[in-house]
C-alpha cells in the first residue's frame, strides 16, 4: 500500500513538472503562431482574453441550454460566433474552417480537435453577412431586434397575459437578458 502511494506521489510530481514546463516548451517550439483573422463586429460578446481561454465553456453552456430547453439567445450561440468570425477560404467560401480560418488555425496550432463541425455548418447563415456589415445590426447588439414587453401596447399586453402560456412576470429577467444582449 505504501509503495503504491509513493508511486502516485511520484507520478503526480512528474505531471506537475510537465505542466509547469509546458509554456517553455511551447514558447520554444518552431511552430508558427496562428494569425487569428479579424472578426466582422467591433467587439466580441465577451472579453477577448476571456474568450481565448473559456470559449469552450461558454459554448458548452449555451449548447445545453439550447438543446435541452430551447433557449436560443444569440449572444453565446455558435451561429453567432460563425456569423461574425467566418472569413473567406481559398475556395472563396465563408467559413471558420480552412488553414487560415478562425477556428481551425488556432485549433491546429494547439492541436485540439474541433468536434463541432462534423455536425454543425461552418459557414455563416445566409443573411448574416449583410446584417453584420450594417453596424446597427451588429450581432453584439442583438437586443435591437427584439421588443421588450414594456414596449408592447396595452392591448397586446392584455392579450398576452390572458393567453395560456405567457406571463408578463418574465419582464424582469428579460430586462436583464436584453441588457446583456445590448453590447458590452
Amino acid at each position: 500500500m505504501t509503495h503504491l502511494l509513493a508511486m502516485a506521489q511520484r507520478l503526480a510530481g512528474a505531471l506537475i513538472i510537465t505542466v509547469l514546463l509546458s509554456p517553455l516548451v511551447i514558447a520554444d517550439s518552431s511552430v508558427p503562431k496562428p494569425e487569428i483573422p479579424k472578426a466582422k463586429g467591433d467587439q466580441c460578446v465577451e472579453d477577448t482574453d476571456y474568450m481565448r481561454r473559456n470559449h469552450m465553456v461558454t459554448i458548452l453552456h449555451q449548447r445545453d441550454e439550447t438543446m435541452r430547453s430551447g433557449i436560443r439567445t444569440k449572444k453565446h450561440s455558435l451561429k453567432n460566433c460563425i456569423n461574425c468570425h467566418a472569413t473567406k477560404t481559398e475556395s472563396g467560401k465563408l467559413s471558420v474552417l480552412g488553414d487560415k480560418g478562425f477556428c481551425q488555425s488556432c485549433h491546429t496550432y494547439a492541436s485540439v480537435t474541433v468536434d463541432c463541425f462534423s455536425c454543425h455548418s461552418s459557414t455563416p447563415e445566409k443573411n448574416a453577412d449583410l446584417n453584420l456589415k450594417a453596424s446597427k445590426n451588429n450581432p453584439h447588439q442583438a437586443g435591437l431586434t427584439y421588443k421588450r414587453a414594456t414596449d408592447l401596447s396595452k392591448k397586446d399586453k392584455k392579450a398576452l397575459s390572458q393567453s395560456v402560456s405567457v406571463t408578463i412576470t418574465e419582464t424582469k429577467n428579460n430586462k436583464a437578458a436584453d441588457n446583456s444582449r445590448s453590447g458590452q
Binding site: G70, I71, R72, K74, D156, A159, V164, E170
Partner: peptide, 18 residues
C-alpha cells in the same frame, strides 16, 4: 389570436410543459 401569440416564445425563455 391569443393562442398564436402564445406560440411565440422569446429566445431566452425555456420550452415549458405548458
Amino acid at each position: 389570436n391569443l393562442i398564436e401569440l402564445a406560440a411565440a416564445r422569446s429566445p431566452e425563455q425555456a420550452a415549458s410543459a405548458v
